[in-house]
Write a protein that binds this DNA or RNA. Structure first.
Lengths: 154, 154
DNA sequence: GAGAGTGTGTCAACATGCTGACACGCCCAT
DNA sequence: ATGGGCGTGTCAGCATGTTGACACACTCTC
């Protein structure tokens, strides 16, 4: 029942620093993407879609850690702007495979380059080996906490 | 103009894993705190307040990465439940030093123990040295991206 | 062929959080 | 004492995201 390490300052807590780093990255990405009229979820959606074309909205949602509904809004916005296409089926309940348009691919490329700058800035102080180690550690954390994290819908 | 490392799968992107780990942690903490009727921001608020009693709402907001307004709602909720006290001043524009009540300290202790389990689970695969290294790396990332991240209010 | 089971897209309601803007108190320089 | 600058608390409006629920399509089993 001893107080263990409860007294440690928050700056030494992995959880706190994780939140801090994540918030900083999110903010930096948002700022970098603003000139391109893209939000972070929108970019993430495009990026996942490039790597795995034809994905349905629900699968996309799981990959980007949002709910199906939010992803639907994102997709709607991107579709209206001509960055991706979905087969215009009238009925519900049918998977709508989504694909990037050439405009979408182009926009994604621009976004990748802008975000490359951000990532470089973020990792400038870390050697390649340290980066891989960090990535592996983060993966370990995510796995240990149960992979089914995030908003799982219904 | 070469495609550089654009083709790497998302699983090897530090940014992606950072988001994934952060989401997983947030989800796990939320679930762990639910029985105590506390949300993550509420817990964070209590924890910071324990380490630095008498903090004003705005300072608290910066420490927890939320806006003053959100923090105000959090504080209101916690005050109504008797977990903390603020001097009931009528006018605006004056800093209201906040302090934990004994009930608040007690609740915070319970939360710390519950979250200790989560943290242990999260870091089980990492040796102490690796934990410190991870923490330092995350701090490095946050610093490199500019410390003034997060919702900065007006 | 009929049935359950799973996955999907959509609607409504709700919760959370932020941006913008305002009024007020404190502090320092004049 | 008086003015400006800064920090703070609060209000209104809006955007985003989630939970819960429903209708429909596909597949597998009997």
């Amino acid at each position: 029942m001893s107080q263990e390490q409860i007294l440690q300052p928050v700056d030494e807590s992995v959880g706190y620093m994780l939140k801090k780093a994540s918030t900083a990255l999110r903010s930096a990405m948002d700022q970098a993407l603003r000139p391109l009229d893209l939000t972070v979820p929108q970019y993430a959606c495009l990026e996942v879609l490039r790597q795995r074309p034809g994905l349905s909205g629900a699968e996309l949602a799981r990959a980007v850690f949002v709910s199906r509904q939010s992803m639907n809004l994102v997709l709607k916005g991107l579709e209206d702007r001509g960055l991706l296409t979905r087969p215009p089926v009238s009925g519900h309940g049918k998977a709508l495979p989504t694909e990037l348009t050439s405009v979408g691919r182009e926009r994604l490329l621009a976004a990748s380059q802008v975000l490359g700058v951000v990532e470089h800035k973020m990792l400038a102080a870390l050697a390649p080996a340290a980066r891989r180690r960090l990535c592996a550690d983060l993966a370990s954390i995510a796995a240990a906490l149960g992979d089914e994290a995030g908003p799982g819908g219904s």
